[in-house]
Design a protein around this nucleic acid. Structure first.
Lengths: 339, 339
DNA sequence: TCTGCTACTGTTACCGCTAACAGCCATCAT
DNA sequence: ATGATGGCTGTTAGCGGTAACAGTAGCAGA
């Protein structure tokens, strides 16, 4: 068990299988790809030989020769915030039936990193690309635009897509939540969210939110930003900070459900009347919330559906650009007063 | 904006850049890879041309010619349980400095799927593979063993590695937790965990746990399994079920922190004295716990460190097999009585 | 002047596979 | 018989790069 190669010979190629089974390389290739006509006995012989040798085809050579790569690049900002794994699930579900395979790249919300991830992926000549967001560096956009493959920008539709787009309007989502909150009678509203300068979708939600507040003659009475750390814990801390600084606040709007959940737990622990004295809302509809003692008001982001639709577009590679808007539903939960 | 290809010509190759800059393809190749000597003016000319054309090298051709692929396959069971994203972080951190790039494949705890993910990855001839767990189908093991690349099995070291291994002993972790619980004076201990037949690590923890119980003349007074759904919610439900069925239980051992957190929230909501009347413990040390009203006892699984060490082994590709055992630390939190 | 080197650039032969086409043989309608 | 047809298998020529080697020019030292 020193080197994982029991057989010191060169790595296996089609030629080895061809020699072992007594047919041409071409025929072996046909059998292994299930393409073209091969007689049943020959097919058996070949499969037998391939299995016996432990042959694994070389897709690099195959892709170069056939000019086809069964890979789909998926570029997302983060794996650890619970929203992208679900998008991935949607993508995988659809792609599984097509012979296409997703390859994930993570950018950590850094434009430079996004650029290099895109470059790296395109250099493998994938059959399509799925990318979170509509904001990319000029170089990124240029690379994608001239790659000659279907590009789907997901999550967001407030902007100009390069090619296709599937997502929701975050601006509208923010507006909608604000309207709901105002309708429920809350007036002293604070915002608590991520500092991340490159989370454009959170930013758009806040814009829409403030827009709707303004229309009702209101504005945020306080705001608190954070970055890094355990979201649940940050939620507690930020909530404490806001309640301390602005005691008469009556609603806390969180930029995501995790910090919202932290805030909810804090309020409950403090014995604060939710949603009577203070209302709370988050964003995303993460499954986690189901386990909380009280359900946080939120808005689902249609993550699974976005993944599926994006994958479908890649698989079908339509000529004309498509922009699919999905409409999130508001889940009032137990943290907004009933009207 | 109908087709993302502004220029209908064929896709760019080295030849295009070579013609545009008036040097041979070979020289262009050298410039783009920073290898070999090229005069400064030539280099500039080439870079200029490449940039102007928007050339993206074709790694497929490059890899075939050079027999080198800067990819590392990473095979994990799931992205959505919080533990693997952190392993990935560790892997990326180390790989970033080496020119190697991780490619993730997800198996959903299905051996068949694992086999096909491994096959698919090996067919791209990566420079190394990192795989969660030591349990794989015979075919998977065979493929990996004869791939001729470094293989690192991570998370677990209770078993026979194919090549290298980095992880903790889950059996020991279970044992250790049981000893702690017994030492704290708990005697009526129940287990609550996943049903998943292929989560071998959870199984090993339970084995170790029961082993230590047996040594103290104890055995589990109840057990409850679940599968699927929101872990936090399941934790509540299962806890309720156990408390109902076995009212005199005095300790709940959860197979992971998420359901443990659900159980903790449930107990607190019910006004149960934790850790006086009932003690609780989970496994993993997920960051999430920091935000809970009370800290759940747990054991970190050294995830970040495992990722880093595995990546380092791949990067260094040592001749001799290595098995690195890490030692998790028990974090008693606030849910085990102080001795 | 010639040699030996260094610095740079070009030529050739693949890497391992597949598209496209070319054969071959049996079967079948004409 | 003749050609047409279809099932099966083999041959050839790349795919787009890179390793290895082969120049070529310029210059230092003998």
């Amino acid at each position: 068990m020193t080197k994982p190669t029991p057989d010191p010979r060169h790595t296996l190629t089609l030629r080895d299988v061809s020699e072992a089974s007594g047919v041409s390389e071409m025929t072996v290739s046909r059998v292994l790809r299930n393409r073209g006509d091969v007689s049943a006995p020959t097919r058996e012989k070949v499969l037998e030989a391939a299995r016996a040798l432990g042959y694994v085809p070389n897709k690099i050579a195959g892709a170069l020769a056939s000019q086809r790569v069964n890979l789909v690049g998926v570029v997302i900002p983060s794996l650890s915030n619970m929203v992208f794994p679900e998008v991935m699930t949607g993508i995988s579900e659809v792609l599984d039936g097509t012979g296409l395979q997703p390859v994930v790249g993570v950018t950590n919300y850094l434009p430079d990193r996004e650029e290099s991830v895109i470059y790296e992926m395109l250099s493998w000549r994938p059959s399509g690309m799925i990318i979170a967001g509509l904001e990319h560096s000029a170089a990124s956009r240029a690379m994608l635009a001239r790659a000659g493959i279907p590009i789907v920008e997901i999550m967001d539709i407030d902007g100009d897509p390069i090619n296709h787009a599937v997502g929701i309007s975050h601006r509208r989502a923010g507006r909608q939540m604000a309207e709901e909150i105002i309708a429920a009678g809350y007036r002293k509203i604070a915002f608590l969210g991520t500092q991340m300068p490159n989370d454009f979708r959170a930013k758009k939600r806040l814009e829409g939110f403030e827009e709707a507040l303004a229309k009702a003659g209101l504005s945020l009475v306080d705001r608190e930003y954070y970055s890094g750390g355990s979201a649940l814990l940050k939620g507690r801390e930020m909530t404490a900070a806001v309640l301390n600084r602005t005691p008469d606040v009556d609603f806390l709007y969180y930029s995501n459900d995790m910090i919202g959940a932290g805030g909810l737990l804090y309020c409950l622990a403090q014995g604060i009347d939710v949603p009577g004295r203070i209302g709370l809302a988050g964003f995303n509809g993460v499954e986690l919330l189901d386990g909380l003692p009280r359900k946080l008001a939120t808005m689902d982001a249609c993550r699974l559906e976005i993944g599926k639709k994006a994958a479908r577009i890649i698989a079908e590679a339509p000529e004309a650009s498509q922009v699919e808007e999905l409409f999130p539903t508001l889940q009032p939960g137990d943290t907004i007063r009933r009207a």
